[in-house]
Amino acid sequence: MLSLRGLTRRFGGLTAVDAIDLDLPKGELISIIGPNGAGKTTLFNLVTGLDRPDAGTVHFEGQDVTGLSPERLAAEGIARTFQLGRVFGNLSVMDNVLIGAHTRLRAVKPAVPVIGPLLELGLALLRPAGVRDEEERLREEVKAILARFGERLLPRIDQPAYSLSYANRRRVEIARALALRPRLLLLDEPTAGMNPTETAEMQALVAELKAEGLTILLIEHKLEMVMRLSDRVIVMDEGKKIAEGPGEEVRNDPKVIEAYLGHGLSGTPELESAV
């Protein structure tokens, strides 16, 4: 489904992502772990088109999508969350998640070349029945997505995102990604900053998504969660892939232990107990 070959990104003298190969089959979940600064987020940026590789290719569903714009990749069904949480602060929870469904708008965005945008403007102002129905359906769908988070988000559906707690903003991000109906979902440290209860909830949700057949690429520091969920684990350090395999195997790989120890376990307290 997703396959990366020799993917490389340099920032000045630093090679943030160094010739990474990766194959993610449909329906599987691969976790990427590694110390801070290993290049995991940069790898996500390359896959989602927010950054362009200096070398290497990205294939999605057999198609070469290297260097395509993020807009195009979103339309192809790739959705992601951001490590630091990038919700639209002044938009309500509802609107944030509706933005996730943007690529699926049809009635209001007729695929007519050149005058398409003007039609979109006209339809938005006139709002014929088709457009209203589409919007109504999406709103119902958003409520269904939010219901997956129990009572965390539904009661706050009309509140602006800036007023939410950190954990809730992370949830809104995931809800937004789900509204895209992704074929591939990239989660960048979805449990960062969450307490154990919240982490457990998040883990259950990701497990559920996986069980539903979603293909997932996960960056996560919490090893417990990684071990539970992953079909395979990839370990990155200084841009390179230093180990790959089933969780247990990787966990005991001397190179991995060395990489973490070499970095003084910085930023990854969970690993301390793990290794």
Partner: peptide, 20 residues
């Protein structure tokens, strides 16, 4: 939907692009 699209671009253009 244009209103929310405009405001999303204003609040975070990177996230907006990532959502198409």
């Amino acid at each position: 939907h244009l209103g929310r699209s405009f405001r999303a671009i204003r609040d975070d253009d990177i996230a907006a692009r990532a959502y198409g």
